[in-house]
Design a binder for these strands. Structure first.
Lengths: 143, 143
DNA sequence: TTATTAAAAGAGAATGATTCTCTAATAAGT
DNA sequence: ACTTATTAGAGAATCATTCTCTTTTAATAA
């Protein structure tokens, strides 16, 4: 078993969640999909090894993982939810004319923003997290 | 008729869209709701003066307005779409534990980001728009 | 190792926001 | 006012997601 899977087992355990094959399969699917998969994409991937996993189970597990902050939902403008297993600080690049969404990591930018808002703040609002959405065009093909 | 309504008529006309009472009512509803309403909130507001407007019509009009860049969809983490009639550059403040979403305008921040990315750019990505999502808590009550 | 039990998975119905289809009405130009 | 393409109305259809109820299973303890 990979180290990542061990880490995932650990995360489930720490949250008091049972370590089930279905949960591990979904976590593994999420980690192997770089491009913020939908529940359906996850199911498709999983059914190769877990042909009998129920649709409702997949949604339930995703909900549990989100509630326990093991994964995140990705904000979009349409009604199909997408998920993200990367919990390290990062932003998202959204393609203007496709569903492609990629990660963008930039600690220098995060520092810049933090400095800016430590001084300035926002009236009547306590900032907990700053997430930048870049809309634009990818100049390469999807990996 | 208010100046804003005149402007809205003008926008519809410029896009080659017919100026209908239903479209004006939806635009008016959007402008009177500061807090990024859902289709349902818009319908509720509208039915006072347009009791017979069809649900499908409201969705259709919202779609047409979005496609013509007269309004925008607001990105959220759940499956109920929300809309925004303000097209001037602004960011959003998201409440961590309610559906409240407010606008945040900060030209100095926009300049800072523009300067930062003019120099730095993002590999394999052409930035068209930068939208910041602030997650946190509001320290005042909703207006 | 087996027994116990609360948590989780399976199956399929239910929900609900949104979209679609088809017909009737109407805005805008002639 | 006349004509016509566009738009609105009505209600069925769709489809992602949630819910309910039953069966199974992971985790702990004997």
């Amino acid at each position: 078993m990979s180290t990542l899977m061990q880490e995932m087992k650990q995360k489930l355990f720490e949250k008091g969640l049972k370590v089930t094959p279905q949960r591990l399969a979904i976590l593994q699917a999420l980690m192997s999909h770089k491009n913020h998969p939908t529940a359906e994409m996850i199911m498709e991937y999983i059914r190769v090894n877990h042909p009998n996993i129920a649709t409702g189970t997949v949604y339930k597990i995703l909900e549990v993982l989100v509630d326990n902050q093991i994964i995140r939902k990705v904000q979009t403008e349409n009604d199909v939810m997408r998920y993200d297993a990367i919990m390290d600080k990062h932003h998202h690049l959204y393609c203007s004319d496709s569903a492609r969404i990629e990660d963008y990591v930039d600690p220098a930018l995060d520092d810049l923003l933090q400095t800016y808002f430590i001084n300035k703040g926002i009236p009547d609002f306590k900032i907990e997290d700053i997430q930048i959405h870049f809309n634009g065009r990818f100049l390469n093909v999807e990996k």
